[in-house]
């Protein structure tokens, strides 16, 4: 392989990894335990549930259904009608800023901090 190109490749890899790992660290460090989850459907707020009490909700949207389970302070998507099932495969969440996303059904579940503080921005 061309040595110059190899060098450029390595620089590209190093820069990409460094920048994304740095951003990752910033995101990871700024996380704290959230107090409630905000459910949106089609970009509009659908419901808010506190993480402190266990519950099971079926989120009905025009595209399908998602089953959201809140247990032991964690929110998890346990079932969905979407074809890919990616949201079900995601891990349970409990820190503010974390979210479960079901793209086919346009459903998102995002953890936010308490006191109605919006974590955006």
């Amino acid at each position: 392989m061309d040595k110059k190109k190899l060098l450029h490749d390595l620089i590209l890899i190093a820069v990409c990894l460094f920048v994304s790992l740095a951003l990752w660290a910033v995101v990871a460090l700024s996380k704290e335990k959230g107090e409630l989850v905000v459910v949106t459907v089609n970009g509009e707020e659908y419901a808010r549930y506190p993480l402190s009490e266990d519950r099971e909700e079926i989120i009905v949207s025009e595209n399908g259904k998602n089953v959201l389970v809140i247990k032991d302070g964690y929110a998890d998507m346990t079932d969905a009608t979407c074809p890919d099932g990616l949201c079900v495969r995601q891990h349970r969440i409990n820190e503010s800023g974390e979210s479960l996303v079901c793209l086919p059904n346009k459903v998102t579940v995002t953890v936010v901090g308490g006191d109605g503080v919006d974590i955006i921005g």
Binding site: S20, L21, L23, G43, E98
Partner: peptide, 22 residues
């Protein structure tokens, strides 16, 4: 994903996806 759902927090996935993409 952000345009469709309107949830900006999805951008938090970008660092993970960038490492994965690399």
């Amino acid at each position: 994903a952000i345009a469709v759902t309107g949830v900006e927090e999805i951008a938090y996935y970008m660092p993970v996806l960038a490492v994965g993409g690399t």
